[in-house]
């Protein structure tokens, strides 16, 4: 397996060597090459420039490039580590690595904290949680009165905000998540364990001699 190498590499800007990426992440070289097949598909869906634009990210998630969603935009912004408005291949792989079933739980907890810390203050504030609840309601048919939302916030903060300062710090978040592990369900993508099966064509594009 893996003898389909020795062709000149033609990669878009932002491409990173799979061997280097494998040493930095939970993925094997083969898995990274398979992820490149997925990356090529997503990054060429609207603008074929080897970078994932927000519209392409939305299209991959919702089958609709115009659908606005606070959470998808937050995920995009966290993947866009260089904060230049696009996701390159290295950013894609490094960020997805956190979602691998074998990635450390601590990394998943930390990523979720950043996701919910909308204003990047180092705390998840009550106003931010309210904003996220309202965003969630607007994407579903669920209707909750402001009183009910405030009650949910009271209960959540009574449990999570142990020092009662109306915001959740990193340590409080870690303790809260450990008591409520279902909150981390979205932070693991079982697909990532089978990525080479999902994109077997990576073998034909492999530039690495031993991809086994």
């Amino acid at each position: 397996m893996g003898c389909f190498h020795s062709k000149p590499s033609q990669h878009a800007a932002g491409y990173e060597d799979p061997v280097a990426l494998a040493s930095d992440t939970t993925f094997s070289v083969s898995e990274i090459e398979a992820l490149y097949e997925l990356f090529k598909k997503i990054s060429s869906s609207v603008i074929d420039d080897g970078l994932i634009h927000k519209e392409e990210f939305r299209l991959a998630l919702f089958k609709n490039s115009k659908k606005e969603n606070l959470f998808a935009d937050r995920v995009f912004d966290l993947f866009d580590v260089k904060r230049n408005g696009v996701i390159d291949f290295g950013e894609f792989v490094r960020s997805l690595s956190v979602f691998h079933p074998n990635a450390p739980l601590e990394d998943k907890i930390d990523f979720a904290f950043q996701l919910y810390d909308l204003r990047r203050t180092g705390f998840i504030e009550r106003e931010e949680v309210k904003q996220m609840l309202i965003a969630l309601l607007s994407e579903s048919d669920m209707k909750l009165s402001d009183d009910v939302i405030e009650t949910i916030l009271d209960k959540t903060f009574a449990e999570a905000d142990t020092n009662n300062d109306s915001r959740i710090d990193k340590e409080e978040w870690q303790n809260f998540v450990l008591r409520n592990p279902s909150l981390m369900k979205n932070m693991t993508l079982p697909y990532l364990k089978d990525i080479t099966t999902a994109f077997p064509s990576f073998v034909f594009n492999s530039e690495v001699e031993d991809v086994a």
Binding site: F71, D73, V75, I195
Partner: peptide, 26 residues
């Protein structure tokens, strides 16, 4: 354990935008 509907983060985590498994679907 059953999800607690009074936990704001349980509710938020049901958002479609947080389900990245859709990236892997055809």
């Amino acid at each position: 354990a059953k999800p607690n509907p009074m936990n704001a983060f349980e509710l938020i985590s049901t958002s479609q935008g947080l389900d990245l498994s859709a990236l892997f679907e055809e």
